[in-house]
Every structure is written in structure tokens, then in C-alpha cells.
Design a protein around this nucleic acid. Structure first.
Lengths: 184, 184
DNA sequence: CCATATATGTGCGCTGCGCACATATTTATC
DNA sequence: GATAAATATGTGCGCAGCGCACATATATGG
């Protein structure tokens, strides 16, 4: 009886310890609900399409295949996603340096939609955050920054996590990196 | 020139202030990516299906229409979602008290899948959190709890935010409520 | 020069979902 | 107590987003 108690407590880490995981899960769900709702209003599409627009806008000579890996989609899914962006006049396919590659570029209205998208995202998160005091927000920022900085992420993981990041406000990305690739 | 500078700085709140929003956005995306990936592995379905299984499992005599509002889906979308859960033998439709309503209940294997789902979710979030020290996690928990407690949420908002919450570990939900409806 | 790797495009089908409509039951009104 | 309105569910239909298998074009290494 006593032995059973110790065994179980060693595995479950009862109560408080998992409470933080549940809280962060709930907050993350609320945050993403709001971000995705705003994104759909801006570009009229869901799934990974808004993220694709943001990633292409980083402008590091994005190709179909790089995009595929960042978004975590299949190859054909990515081609069709780009088809939609092209038919919406937000993206152009140009010739890449390598004759196989396609160089993806935002059109003028694509760049405008991307800016709206980023603003909508920041606004959505801010509306949840602004119940905290400036001091509390600073504390939270420090903790999240540490949390991200200590993750063991591959280069592609970093691009994936940052696939909706606002390169206008995220000047020094906390994610660990041997060499800084995309400046955010 | 100087005037322009002041006007712009008043609107944009440059740098640091939006940095926290971007960080929380990135973290939330990483958290939900991991939760959704695990959920799809457990139940073999995506979208709001995993959340539906969890919500039905709260066992407060869930109906099709309550579920619809909690998940934020259309009516028909919800009916078809329940169709899938029924065809997967995870949920049963029983007669509700009101002759119009359908009472949704988990089958034995539905309850088992739900437990796997909750465990997978906690594990996914924990794997991101455990780079923090116990003290840091406690600090973070306090901040998130405050953030959630100060939100201006309707009753339905609370159910929506909590639609994937683990009622086994979330003993006192921080979300503001006049009367506690679902004990988590 | 030829096999293999890399990058893109296509036919086809499935899952998840919304709109419009149909149906059944309760509640309100006269 | 009959009838209108509200509530709750189910269905036909179509679209968006995505993956699998296959086809094609360009580069790279033996």
C-alpha cells in the first residue's frame, strides 16, 4: 500500500507540476484561436496559407521545397498552397538560380496582406496580454525567452516555430542557433 | 521631422512592448503544433475532433448544440463530427431528457482514447517546459494564471478556452466565473 | 555518359467544414 | 387546445486543404 503510493507519485508528479502544463496548453489554444481567426479574416484562407505568406515574405529566396519543410506539409500540398497564393495574386513564381527551383516572391498586394497579417497577429496576442502590468509582461517575456532559448531545436525547427513571427518587432530571436540565418 | 517621430512612436510602441506579443505567439504556435501532432496520432483525426472527445468526456450531459458552441463550428459541421466519432465507436448518441436533444456519451474505448489524448497533451507541453527550473515554472504558472484570471470571458468563452483542458490536473481553473459549471 | 539525387508539377481521393434546407419537438400566444 | 415561433437535430451538396502515387525536368557524381 505504502509502496504503491511511492511508485505512483514518482510517475505522475501529482497536481501542481502538471498544472503549469495544462495552463500553458489552455493559453496557447486561446492565443492560436485568436491569431487564426484574424488571419482568416485578412487573407480569406486557413491552414498553413497565412504562415506561407509570412515565410515567403522573409525574402531569403524561398523555394517550394524549403517552404514545404518549414510548414511541415507534403510536397503536393505545398505546390497547391502556392497555386492558391498565385491565383489570389499574392505571390509570383519566378525562375530560381538553379534551373529546377522556383523562386517565390510576394506581389505588392501580397506584401500588403502580409503586413496586415502580422499586425493582426500582434494585435490578437496583445489583447490577451494587456491585462498584465508592464512589470508582469517583462517578467513573462524573460521567462518565455529563456524557455525558447533552452530548447534543443534544429535549424528547420527554428524556421517552423518562427513561421508566423513578425520580423519587424522580433529583433533578436531567442531560439538557439549556431549562425543567424534570417535575422529575427 | 521631430513631430513625425513622436507621432509614430505613440502609435507603434516600438520594440520591447510588441516583442512579448511576438514571443507568446511563437511559443503558442510551438505548443499547439506539438499538441495537435500528438492528438492526431492518438485518435487518427484532426480539426476539432480531439477537442470534441475531451469536451464530451466532461460528462455534463453534452448535446450536439452545446458542443457546437464550445467548438465554434457550424451546426452541420458538428453533426458530421459526431458522426465520425460514432463511426469510430468512440461516442454513442443516446436519448436526451428533452425529446429534441441528443445526449452524447463516450464508449469505453472513447474514454480510453480521451485519457490517452489528455496524457499526450500534457506530455507535449511538459517536454517544452522542462527546460525551466522548478522556480521558473512556478513563476510562469503564476503569471499565466493571472493572465487568464483577468480576461473578460463569457461563460461560453471559458468552455471554448478549456475545450482541451485536463480535468484530472486542472483542479481550480483561473478563468473568471460567477458560478463554477464544470469543475476544472 | 549514365545513374542518382533534387525540385517541381499533376491526377485522384479523403477529411473537415459551411450553407441551405428539411424535420421533429418544445414553448409561447391567442 | 390549436397554431406560430423557437429550439435541436439530420441531410444534400459543394469547397478548401491536404496527402499519396506518379510524372517530369534539371543537376550531380561515378
Amino acid at each position: 500500500m505504502v509502496k504503491l503510493f511511492f511508485v505512483r507519485s514518482a510517475h505522475i508528479i501529482p497536481g501542481m507540476e502538471n498544472g503549469i502544463a495544462n495552463l500553458l496548453g489552455a493559453l496557447s489554444l486561446a492565443v492560436m484561436d485568436r491569431i487564426e481567426h484574424g488571419a482568416r479574416e485578412v487573407v480569406g484562407r486557413g491552414g498553413e496559407t497565412p504562415a506561407a505568406l509570412i515565410v515567403i515574405g522573409y525574402g531569403q529566396g524561398m523555394t517550394n521545397d524549403k517552404l514545404r519543410r518549414i510548414l511541415g506539409l507534403s510536397h503536393s500540398g505545398t505546390v497547391r498552397l502556392v497555386d492558391r497564393l498565385v491565383s489570389d495574386r499574392l505571390v509570383e513564381r519566378r525562375a530560381g538560380k538553379d534551373g529546377r527551383e522556383v523562386a517565390l516572391h510576394l506581389t505588392a498586394s501580397g506584401a500588403a496582406s502580409r503586413n496586415e497579417l502580422l499586425a493582426s497577429r500582434i494585435s490578437a496576442v496583445t489583447s490577451l496580454l494587456d491585462v498584465l502590468s508592464a512589470a508582469e509582461r517583462k517578467q513573462l517575456a524573460t521567462l518565455i525567452r529563456e524557455l525558447l532559448a533552452r530548447q534543443d531545436t534544429s535549424e528547420m525547427d527554428r524556421f517552423t516555430i518562427c513561421r508566423m513571427c513578425d520580423d519587424r518587432v522580433c529583433t533578436n530571436c531567442p531560439l538557439p542557433t549556431s549562425k543567424g540565418q534570417h535575422g529575427h
